[in-house]
Simulated assay, not measured.
Amino acid sequence: MDPIAYVNGSFVPLSEAKVSILDRGFLFADGIYEVAAVLDGKLVDSASHLARLERSVGEIGLALPESVARIEELQKELIARNQLDNGMVYLQVTRGADKSRDFPFPKGVTPTLIMFVTVKDIVNAPSAKTGIGVITVPDIRWARRDIKSVALLAQVLAKQAAAAAGAGEAWMIEDGQITEGGSSSAFILTKDDVIVTRPNSNAILPGCTRKAVVALAEERQLKVEERAFTVEEALKAKEAFITSASAFVQPVVTIDGKPVGDGRVGPMATRLREIYIDFARATAV
């Protein structure tokens, strides 16, 4: 069956989904995107993703063509039409298609809104039991990484380097410190059992899964420090892991080919993954 996509007010077969070649998302990366997980046919952490969407479009002066409540309704309908049990919903909004390619914001143009789904069994991913390796690369992105921009070329290059090296993710380095992964937030567990992750700022994307994991850890009286850390500190840590909507909590067992801790999946990452999955199932809509 041809999957169903949503394009500017209509549900259409994915093979027939089209936008103009003059769309500013295509020409200028003038747009914002979101990715939400789906478990058992329901959206995970939807309110957090939609709040981030609202913030991101606000930061670039882009008006949503639908309310966030309506967008959530459309996502749910898309899930139902595709009979999706487990996977992801991708959403992208751009400033739309003008009559010409000009840099300033066009007037009287309706924003483009598209959505599609992918099938993915995040809960039962084999890498959750084996862990992944990460490599480090320079962080060459723009200064406003807190905006979930569709301008992802730097991340594409980082993740391609990881794939070429047989790694599961790339950690980006700036001023000697880890900012975040190509599509994930970075965490370590120190020898003193402190969970460390970089604080939110313009330097990183405010991860929705990161936010939930930090809150869930603190609710269980686990010590969390939001501060920057180096590769050297990560290699001396007990454990390392990443969080994202597409992976939940994913253990990291090597960095640039060197083991983290004993080089095996640790109990903290495993427990936080279990806690997050319970949260995701309990709060999905």
Rank of each mutant, 00 (worst) to 15 (best):
V137Q: 04
V137S: 07
P138L: 07
P138K: 04
D139W: 00
D139A: 06
I140E: 12
I140P: 00
R141Q: 08
R141E: 00
W142L: 08
A143L: 13
A143K: 13
A143M: 13
D146R: 09
I147K: 01
S149F: 03
S149P: 03
V150C: 07
V150E: 01
A151M: 04
L152T: 02
L152Q: 00
L152G: 03
A154L: 03
Q155F: 06
Q155K: 09
L157W: 05
L157P: 00
A158G: 03
K159F: 02
K159V: 03
Q160A: 08
A161F: 06
A161I: 09
A162C: 01
A163W: 01
A164P: 03
A164E: 13
A164F: 04
A165N: 06
A165M: 03
G166E: 02
G168M: 02
G168K: 02
G168Q: 02
M172G: 01
I173N: 01
E174D: 09
E174I: 03
D175S: 11
G176F: 09
G176P: 05
Q177H: 09
Q177K: 13
Q177Y: 08
Q177R: 12
Q177L: 12
I178Q: 02
I178D: 01
I178R: 07
I178L: 09
T179G: 04
E180C: 11
E180V: 10
E180N: 12
G181C: 06
G181L: 05
S183V: 14
S183G: 15
S184T: 15
S185H: 14
A186Y: 08
T190W: 01
K191S: 15
K191N: 15
K191G: 14
D192L: 12
D192F: 10
D192Y: 13
D193P: 02
D193C: 04
V194A: 07
I195H: 08
R198Y: 10
P199V: 11
P199S: 12
P199D: 07
N200R: 11
N200H: 12
S201H: 13
S201W: 09
S201I: 12
A203L: 08
I204G: 01
L205Q: 07
L205V: 10
L205S: 08
P206C: 13
G207R: 07
G207I: 05
C208V: 15
T209W: 05
T209F: 06
T209I: 10
T209D: 03
R210G: 11
R210C: 11
R210V: 11
K211V: 10
K211P: 04
V213E: 02
V214T: 10
V214M: 11
L216M: 12
A217N: 05
E218Y: 06
E219C: 04
E219Q: 13
R220Q: 12
R220T: 07
Q221H: 15
Q221G: 14
Q221N: 15
L222T: 03
V224A: 06
E225P: 01
E225A: 11
E225R: 13
E226C: 14
E226T: 14
R227K: 15
A228W: 00
A228Q: 11
A228S: 14
F229P: 00
F229D: 00
V231S: 08
V231K: 15
E232P: 02
